[in-house]
Every structure is written in C-alpha cells, then in structure tokens.
Design a protein around this nucleic acid. Structure first.
Lengths: 353, 353
DNA sequence: ACGGAAATGTTAAACGGTTAACGAACATAT
DNA sequence: ATATGTTCGTTAACCGTTTAACATTTCCGT
C-alpha cells in the first residue's frame, strides 16, 4: 500500500527535472553521462517503475495488442477457446512473441453485435489480431483509429486489403487425398461440415477434389458426408459410412475431431481401423498421437501462426505504411497408423483388385 | 485516422461542462433528467467512447486483471498453455467472467526471475490470478501495491494468507482408487510423476493410499510407478506394468495424458483395455471421450475454476478487507469404458478368485 | 417573503508521464 | 570579440479523464 513512486520523486531525489528523467528513461540523448548515471542509480535505488498508463495517455500508444477470438455461437457464453485446444496454442504463440517485442497481450472473445472499435478505443490498443471469420465492420473499425489489424484464419474475404495469416487449406486437402490415393485407394469419402458455409472447409474440399480429378476420379456426391464439425458429427458420419462399407475404403475428415468420431463408430461396430477404413484427419492436434491407432493427419502450425501474426502486427504498428502481407502456411501430412495400403488391407479378406 | 472524440467534444456540443458529462457517464446523480438525456444523446450521436487509459490514470484503477501462467521450464520460451489444453479452458473461464464484470484480461507467462511487481505497477493492474506453484515473492509483490491476488492450483503453501482456488486432489485420488476397489480390484498400481516434488500429485497419491488402507490394503512400493507427467512417461510406465501383468489388474494414472501412454503400451503389446488392465485417469480432458475405449477419469472443473478465481478476485478488488477465501472444488469420477469389474474380466481367462 | 436545503452545474487541480520550445554554458571558428 | 553551434537542461503545456470544492438556481416550509 506504499505510495507509488513517480517520475517526480526520482527527479526530486536526483536533483534534476522530470524532463531529464524522462529523457534518460527513453534513451533520448540529452543528458551528460554523469547525470544519466545518477538518474539510473536513483531509479534503481527507489525501485521505480514507469507507469505505462500515464505514458499511453501521453504518447497515444499503449504498447498493448489485443487478440479477438471467436465465440462459441451456441452458448455465446464461452469462448471456443474453452473446447478447442487450438486457441490456447495460438494464444501461447501470440503471448510469447508479444512479450519478446515488449507488448502486453489482452484477450477477449469477439461477441456478436459488438464492435471492436469500442475495445480499441477504450484501451488505446496499438493493434489487434483477429481470429476467425472477419466481418467488414472489424476492419473499418480498426482502420478508423490508426490501429493495425492482422486477420487469422479468414482467408476468403478482402485478403488483399489486410495483413493476414492463413494455412493453405487447398493444399492440405490435396495432401490428404493424395496420400490416400498413393496408398491405392480409389473410393475416398470426405467427412466435413457444410461445405458451402465455411470457407476453410470448402477449400479443403477443393484440394480433395483436385487430387481425385488428377487421377481421373470424379467426386461422387454420395461420398460427401456433411454434419457438425464435432466428435458427434463424426460419429454419425461414421455410422453412415458403415452402411456403405463395401464401397468406401478410405475417408478424409476435414477435422481431427470428426475423425475420432468416425473411429469410434467403427470400433463400436466391430470394425477396425485401418483394416476396414483408412482415415486421415486435419489439424494434427496432440490427441492424434494418443488415439489407437494414432491418426494420420494434416499438420497445421498453430503456434507459429500466433508468432507470425504478432510479428506482422508489430511491423505494421511501427510502420503503418508497409504493404499488406498475406502469409499462407504450407501444410504437411503426418503419417501415422490410421491409414494403410489398399492392397495390403485386402490381404485380410481376399485378393487385391 | 479521425481525430479522437473526447469528453470535451461532447461537453462542447452539448453545451455543458466536462464534469457534467463525466458525471452522467458515471451515473453520479448530479444532472437533471433533461441534461442527462441531452448528454447521452450527444454521446451516441458522436460515437464517443470514454478512454479507459485516461480514466485509469485518474482514478488509479485500471479495470484490468492479469493472468499469470506457468512457463514450460524446459523451453522457457513457450507457455505450458501451448501444450496443455487445460490452460486454454481455464483462460476461457477467466475471460468470460472478466468480461461479465467489466474487466479486461491481460495474459502473460510468469517467467522465472521476473517479478510480477513490475507488471502490476506498469499497468496498474487491479488484481492478478496466479496459476501454478506460487513463490512468496509473488504475494509480497502484489500486496505491496494494493493489487489483489488469487492463487490457483497451489494448494500447499501459505493457503490461509491468500485467496485461492484449488481442487481436492486427495479426494480425487481417493475416488479413483475407490472406484477400482469397488470393481473388485485389489492390486492397484499408481502411475505418477515424482510424488515428492509436486504437491498436487502427492495429494492424489495420498487419496489413493487412503482408499486402499480403508480396505486394509497397504501400498506396495513396487506398485508406485514414477516417470514424467506426459504421454511418453505413461508409455514407459505401461511397459513396466506389462512386466508385472500377472500381479497388477488396475492402475490409477494421476493425469489422463499418462493413462493414454499406458493404453498405447498395452495395445502395442497385444493386450486389451480394460480386459487386461483397468485404468482410471485424472483431469477428464476432452480426449478421454475420443480414445478407445473412452477413459474413466476424475473430472476437474477447469472452466469453473477460472470463473471462480475471477469472482473472488473482483470481490477482493471491490472490498480489499474481505476475509481470505479458499475454495476447494470437490471432484467426481466419470465412469467410462476403461475400467471393468475384476471378476468379469476373469471370465475371459478363468474363474473369479 | 425569507432562510435553508436540495438540485444542478461549473471550475480547476490532480493522475504520471512526454515533448516542443526555450535557455544557459561552453567550445570553436572567423 | 563576435558569431555559431553543441551540449545539457528546464519550463510548461498537454494527453483524457475524475472529483473536491465551490456557485447558482429551485423548492419548500413557515
């Protein structure tokens, strides 16, 4: 409960003006070495910490950046952060890089109907990292006040107009399907959420389609399974695939979590992965290594995305006129035990076609 | 890039003094209904947002709270947040409750050698939620500046002196072992990290011991397996258990992630869960539902811990003199498919002893 | 009609920094 | 000796709020 020590206390004790103390702190070269030493010494002795709130007010910059996370629409209450390990990992990257660059990180859910203008303005945020599907409102909000903006995971819209960090979903989808094709599979289903709603999912689908058509295979409508992007959604799709078990030998699930649901459905019905179905997931969350068999999945660099977003943001804060940067992370498939060669699989039940 | 609108602009436009505008904003009842309406109207028209930085400076409170997260000691670089879904879930609770109470949330890793005094001082933080093993330095830092402190997951030390939120590890460990005992198991191993190092783990062990001795069973030293608190650690323990497969029929893993490692070791060696080994985990992370069989686990309310911590913190901020509160969440076991009755299991291989 | 309280405002000094503008002291060049 | 420039500092205004202290008007009881 001590009285807070201010720059004036330092000035008084050191016998100089507050301006001089301020200059020393900020490295403005306007003090003799002697004075500098004296001031620094005094600061140390008194355990003085400059107050960033006051500084913010004065220089109109806060040295804080914000992360806006999507909300779980179903509850409006909790962040997706709660249920999806992704966001924690992402924030970790943001926090680390922010800290390294001297910025503090504020987090918040971006609740519908809310404007980020409010948030930026209230706290004088120097910039924000916006995760998820961005709305035009967001960008105009940011621009209006000299705050910088980096979009993450919202590839589609207005990409050129903003800084952005994305993963190459098309290529990822392609890699997934390609892997299955290389294993000799021809009848490859896809498990997804509504393909037309979510841009990222649609792009993964496109990659899948590309890989197939490269081999002269066209996508069969009845091989496109759509349900909610969740374990339960995957489970339901798993049951539907089981009905077509003779025709489908492999499936590309556009999210790991759906893949787990499919695996569950299969096990419950006495089928085995990968003997009865090869599965490749997408995201490569830690759980992929824990399940049995471990899930082959398209790896996405979540932590690195956080780091990169902050790097771009801070560059932009320091120099608002740099051209927009749009980073697209290439994706690589991590092969594990949930996929196997189509022919070898046939060895269990007969000859290879 | 517009000029920011300040309280003076509002005052000018509405033809009143800034003090009046301020009063209206803060609900101080010093203005006539007419004036109030006028001011509010003007605020809306001009899209004015009070600047919290300036307010902070003025009232010496920031309406911000901080969350200090433990760092992964191995890297010092990244947060544990990166690898452990826990923290994301926890932060989600903190963010939600903070938002509901009008506080913004700042997050940071608590890096060794750092003092939180600096952080509190710099940003005028009203309070902080400290997660993990706390050091005395933290508390004196906080106290010194009227900042409030809530300790999370650091049951042991100086509990009475601070607000705290913890889970009842002893009871959780007890519940885990009890469940296995109730299923008829007698030779129950425990998989843990070094029992003497981490207080929480030690308490879980104590609960396990209590349950056993209640049944007249004493803990066998060769049934205590210790390794790193990770999937790999669990895997190694799994291999060691396999060597004693005749003797051990069940295991309590003090963290889900270790349980998954054990399961993996068993499957790789052609053994089946729960037929050859009943397993109960601890934490009940989402993954428990995804693995096959789904893991029986002691559920811990991570999100609620976040909510509760913030509630206590804000109470303490508003009234610094309230007595210290120490919340201890009771734990409940969630039964799933990784455990089975000892006798039924014997049906596979012979008679029930 | 008068005094005092209540209601409604205003003024101006904080809060803890930054920084433009100014100035003194001293060295150097002419 | 004078002009010119550096070096080292100070003064004071400002950032956008809050709030104590004061001022004016209105209301009410007697």
């Amino acid at each position: 409960m001590d009285k807070r020590i201010t720059i004036r206390d330092i000035a008084r004790r050191a016998g100089v003006s507050v301006a001089t103390v301020s200059n020393v702190i900020n490295g403005v070269n306007k003090a003799s070495d002697g004075t500098k030493k004296l001031v620094l010494q005094t600061i140390k002795e008194m355990g003085y910490q400059p107050n960033l709130t006051a500084r913010s007010l004065s220089i109109n910059r806060s040295q804080m950046i914000g992360v806006l996370l999507p909300i779980d629409e179903s509850t409006t209450a909790s962040l997706l952060l709660r249920d999806n390990p992704f966001y924690g990992e992402f924030i970790s990257g943001v926090e680390y890089q922010g800290m390294m660059s001297g910025y503090d990180v504020l987090i918040s859910g971006f609740r519908p109907g809310q404007s980020c203008r409010e948030w930026i303005l209230k706290r004088d945020l120097d910039g924000i990292v916006f995760v998820g599907n961005y709305t035009d409102a967001v960008s105009s909000d940011a621009k209006e006040f000299g705050s910088q903006l980096v979009l993450v995971d919202s590839y589609d819209e207005g990409l050129e107009k903003h800084h952005s960090v994305n993963i190459d979903d098309v290529q990822g989808g392609y890699a997934a399907a390609k892997h299955l094709l290389d294993l000799g599979h021809k009848n490859i289903a896809i498990a997804a959420s509504n393909i037309l709603v979510d841009g990222a999912i649609y792009r993964r689908f496109c990659g899948y389609k590309d890989a197939l058509s490269e081999k002269g295979i066209s996508v069969r409508n009845d091989f496109i399974f759509q349900d909610s992007l969740s374990f339960d959604g995957g489970y339901r799709i798993g049951l539907r695939i089981l009905e077509n078990i003779g025709q489908i030998s492999a499936v590309f699930a556009v999210a790991d979590i759906m893949a787990f649901g499919i695996m569950k459905a299969f096990y419950e019905n006495g089928k085995q992965i990968p003997r009865d179905l090869s599965i490749v997931g997408f995201d490569d969350i830690k759980t992929c290594e824990y399940v049995i068999p471990p899930l082959t999945s398209v790896h996405q660099p979540v932590y690195e995305k956080g780091i990169t977003a902050v790097n771009i943001l801070i560059d932009a804060i320091k120099n608002p006129d740099i051209p927009k940067r749009n980073v697209l992370f290439p994706l690589k498939l991590t092969e594990r035990g949930s996929t196997m060669n189509f022919c070898e699989r046939r060895l269990f039940s007969g000859a290879c076609l």
